[in-house]
Design a protein around this nucleic acid. Structure first.
Lengths: 106, 106
DNA sequence: CCATCATGCAGGTATTCACCTGCCTTTCTT
DNA sequence: AAGAAAGGCAGGTGAATACCTGCATGATGG
């Protein structure tokens, strides 16, 4: 997985909104997804392209429609590699801070 | 908390590297943090400024030095609001996909 | 005190990015 | 078959951003 791609893709509020919309109702078409976003269909296409490129969603053609499905795995990997790491170090970090602050006092 | 700020701040690999470095060794000075990043001190200052603005780290002055400490809370909140949500829907999403694919078959 | 070290502040630039408009192809419906 | 509906492709623009150079300030140690 490309960490960087996932983070950069999640950086845009419109793209997060798209994921959100798909989480409510998975398998939507482009036109359906456009309804939530007050921007051009072409712009939404670009955003969806980036999301697919980051492997955050996958698509299926069905006749003239294109259906979009969330792929939750990269999000979970981001959690595993990034957030859990800091969570584990949480208590020791707080301890470091306490020690540091105390060393300022006479 | 400003979700958007946190996501945008995490989007840059240099800033993630800084957080990583602080996770290994909390309470580093600016100069120490510069060592890991092959870029100008001034650029690192900008990155640290953004991280602090997103509340991902806090600082303390100690004489002429400025010490940097990670704040793991926003990361945890991102997990709570974003990643856990998709994780919970994971099984049902896979079910939706399965149903969708099956409806393509005759 | 004065040289040095750690940091702050102010532009300057080149790339990236998030939008848009305009036009074309494919599929469905009647 | 013809119009409508869904989507694809290309190029263009303005704002954001990630760097940089150059100079100023405050703390420390001999």
């Amino acid at each position: 997985m490309d960490d960087d791609k996932v983070f950069k893709t999640l950086a845009d509020p419109s793209r997060r909104k798209l994921l959100d919309s798909l989480c409510d109702h998975n398998g939507q078409t482009l036109s359906q997804l456009c309804a939530a976003l007050e921007m051009t269909r072409q712009s939404v296409t670009q955003h969806l392209g980036l999301l697919e490129d980051a492997n955050l969603l996958s698509t299926t053609r069905k006749g003239r429609e294109k259906l979009h499905f969330i792929n939750p795995i990269p999000l979970y990997e981001v959690y595993e590699r990034w957030i859990r790491k800091f969570e584990e170090g949480r208590l020791s970090l707080l301890h470091d801070l306490k020690t540091q602050l105390e060393s300022d006092q006479p």
